[in-house]
Simulated assay, not measured.
Amino acid sequence: MDLFDDLPEPTQAGQHLSAAVAVLPLSTKEDKCAKRKREDEESPMVRNEEEEENKKVCREGLPLLRGYVAARRGERDEMQDAHVLLPDMSPCLAALPSQVSQVSYFAVFDGHGGARASRFAAEHLHHTLAKKFPQGETDNLDKLIKKCLLDTFRQTDEDFLKKASSQKPAWKDGSTATCMLVLDDVVYVANLGDSRAVLCRMEADGGATATLALSKEHNPTIYEERMRIQRAGGTVRDGRVLGVLEVSRSIGDGQYKRCGVISTPDLRRCQLTSNDRFIILACDGLFKVFSADEAVKFVLDIFQEGGADQKLMDKEEQFEAACQQLASEAVRRGCADNVTVILVSIDF
């Protein structure tokens, strides 16, 4: 049984990607003394050039990810969302697993009851993740990444609750979390609450597009979530925990943890292919007025219907414009909540 709820396997067009990042072994066993002597004779500039060339070889065939963000306060008095864009997370890590060349991290946090939980998660979760991240030789990377993500969410929740309970009066903030970790061409999404992540994938013939859900929502109306809450002694009224909290999993919300609200994320894994265009991560402010399919279509329509002005824009400008217009359209459609949208472009 797989550790993650996998999405559909990549199409034939993308099956070559894993092979492209295989690390080539050194040729025959080389005399260590001779090798060291040769390295000593080389100038630092030569070694640096070789290192850069090796990095290029390792990265060949891997996706280039760029993140764009748009945030709208809506009709709320306070912006309670937070976000993180780390197209290159390597500086945060002590070392990478031996079979991994690049790591990216993107996250959206939708706060409720205040902005302190979402801001805390945005500031600390990826640093906790970096401390727990697997290094060196690894036999089962999926298993280690799963454990790393689960431990990170648990630790982040515990750290915030400890800080919240020490305040006078105690903080009652909570936050959803949708975090996307990308190792080379494999996406891992960890999700708590009702923010979402969706992938736009083109069909192999370049025609129709498919919208793939990369996350699972957690609210008290879902049978398994409601049963857990009730077993813990809590109740669900009007679709909310104790008639108040709209989500059944979150960071923070210390007053609801005894009622079955947990910080264990749902985990999904997906291998990217050359047919993939972009990923949308957004809080429920977007998805209250857009279905996942509508959001993807809205972005594609902006790319296709921009006319002459759109053609003059480079790809980065197109994605930036699409991200901003998607968030603005959510507000125009009547969403009174905070709206945060991260649009991640995928280029092979």
Rank of each mutant, 00 (worst) to 15 (best):
D5L: 14
L7P: 06
P8S: 04
G14E: 07
Q15L: 15
H16I: 11
S18W: 13
A19F: 08
L26Q: 10
S27C: 06
E30C: 08
D31Y: 02
K32N: 00
A34S: 12
K35T: 13
E42M: 13
S43K: 05
V46C: 02
K55S: 08
K56Q: 11
K56S: 11
C58V: 11
R59N: 10
R59T: 07
L62R: 14
L62M: 10
P63D: 01
P63F: 02
G67F: 05
G67T: 03
Y68E: 08
R72K: 13
E75K: 13
D77A: 12
D81H: 05
A82N: 11
D88H: 12
M89Q: 03
A95I: 13
A95C: 06
P97S: 00
P97N: 09
Q99F: 11
Q102A: 13
F106N: 03
F106A: 12
G111F: 03
H112L: 13
R116M: 15
A117K: 05
S118H: 06
F120K: 03
T128I: 15
P134E: 06
Q135R: 15
D139V: 12
D139A: 14
D142T: 08
I145M: 05
K146N: 10
C148Y: 09
L149S: 08
L149Q: 06
L150C: 14
F153Q: 03
T156R: 07
Q167E: 13
A170W: 00
W171I: 06
A177Y: 05
M180N: 06
L181C: 09
L181E: 04
L181K: 07
D184L: 04
G193W: 08
A197S: 15
R201C: 03
R201Q: 05
G207C: 01
A208F: 15
T209N: 00
L212K: 03
A213F: 07
H218G: 00
I222A: 07
Y223M: 08
E224Q: 14
E225G: 02
E225S: 00
M227A: 12
R228F: 09
Q230E: 15
D238S: 10
G239M: 10
R240Y: 03
V244Q: 09
L245F: 02
L245R: 07
E246F: 04
R249N: 05
S250I: 11
G252M: 07
G252W: 01
D253L: 08
Q255N: 02
Q255W: 00
K257D: 00
R269P: 09
R269M: 12
D276C: 08
I279S: 03
L281N: 06
C283N: 09
A292C: 06
D293C: 11
Q304W: 14
Q310I: 12
Q310V: 14
A321E: 12
Q325Y: 13
A327Q: 05
A327K: 01
A330D: 04
G334L: 05
A336G: 14
V344G: 08
